[in-house]
């Protein structure tokens, strides 16, 4: 049956909006040029909440960020001067533009070495800066494959059920979730821990009997932000598309290991929440030559970018912008009242 993915959730930290207000008044002024920002996914540690994309004070100055324990995702912020501008934004066009970048990175192979390129996001905003009121809308573009990704066995197996304890321990060590801690923004490239089987450490493949049973299997390992027991997070979609487009996967089947962290932290894998997933990819014409072929591809018609979906619903579940009134948080008078 068709594989389903848990939609991403955004969080705007008050510190981000305070910093953005400052930037808008003093630097951006009337410009509506897109601003590059960085969003952070906390480690997925709890079974009751997913890892969420958070924008905070360091999202606007990623170079100065000291957030070491998170996955970073590149985003494009468009801050409109007027509510009319925000309302009238050509959202499908903006979505297509980001989707085209993801698609180009898939086709060129850039996303193989830097998988964070698959996690691009978009955020449209309008802020009434005098009254600290903000309308905003996130989009997490997922490119749609020509036919759905399917899985012969749903719901997915929990790692603890799929493998004997010794093998789980080996996977835990080999997966090295803890390494992320030292990566910081550079850790963007670690968003997908390992691309494909031939990059997989021997320790992992050697001790994973089910994975090598059929000979050359491709194992994809992802840090999975979803907390749902039966579906992986949204980001896997673009990765699977990349696998379908770029990789010569035997029988169009990949095995996906969705890593979720223990609530004790420290990069310890939680085998009771981590999932092992078998995915069947749709058949696609390969638009790009593999590296072993001629380095210069013959001129060809550019492959059209697939449609993208992924606008974040509001709190009521409708595809509408979200609204935040931070007056009670940021107004000086309000702060004075609270500081009793």
């Amino acid at each position: 049956s068709d594989l389903q993915h848990a939609a991403l959730q955004s969080v705007l930290d008050v510190s981000f909006l305070a910093e953005l207000t400052d930037l808008k008044l003093n630097v951006l002024k009337l410009s509506e040029e897109p601003v590059e920002v960085v969003g952070y996914f906390s480690p997925n540690r709890y079974d009751s909440v997913p890892a969420r994309l958070t924008l905070d004070v360091s999202s606007l100055t990623p170079a100065a960020s000291s957030r070491l324990d998170c996955h970073a995702a590149p985003g494009r912020l468009v801050l409109y001067n007027t509510i009319e501008g925000f309302r009238g934004a050509d959202k499908p066009a903006l979505m297509r533009r980001v989707a085209a970048e993801v698609w180009a990175d898939i086709c060129s192979g850039a996303a193989e070495s830097e998988p964070w390129r698959l996690t691009r996001f978009l955020v449209l905003m309008h802020g009434d800066l005098k009254h600290y009121k903000f309308n905003y809308w996130f989009a997490f573009p997922a490119l749609k494959p020509p036919a759905p990704f399917t899985s012969p066995e749903l719901p997915p197996t929990r790692l603890a059920d799929a493998l004997p304890p010794a093998a789980v321990e080996a996977v835990s060590g080999a997966a090295g979730m803890g390494q992320r801690r030292t990566l910081g923004v550079r850790g963007m490239r670690q968003h997908v821990a390992m691309g494909r089987a031939r990059r997989t450490p021997h320790t992992l493949t050697r001790r994973l009997p089910p994975l090598r049973a059929g000979g050359r299997h491709v194992l994809v390992v992802v840090s999975d932000g979803s907390h749902l027991p039966d579906c992986p997070a949204w980001q896997l979609r673009n990765l699977l598309l990349m696998a379908a487009v770029r990789w010569r996967v035997p029988e169009l089947r990949v095995c996906v290991l969705c890593l979720r962290e223990s609530s004790r932290g420290g990069g310890r894998l939680d085998p009771h929440r981590s999932l092992l997933l078998h995915v069947c990819l749709p058949s696609l014409p390969s638009p790009a030559p593999t590296p072993s072929q001629a380095p210069v591809p013959p001129p060809q018609a550019p492959t059209p970018c697939p449609d993208a979906v992924g606008w974040e619903p509001d709190a009521a579940g409708a595809l509408r912008p979200r609204f935040l009134d931070l007056g009670p948080h940021l107004r000086p008078e309000a702060q004075a009242e609270q500081a009793v």
């Binding site: 068709d2 389903q4 993915h5 848990a6 939609a7 749609k144 749902l228 979906v309 606008w311 595809l319």
Partner: peptide, 10 residues
């Protein structure tokens, strides 16, 4: 917005 049907979204 009305996005295209997305069977892959949980």
């Amino acid at each position: 917005l009305n996005e295209a049907d997305d069977e892959a979204a949980a």
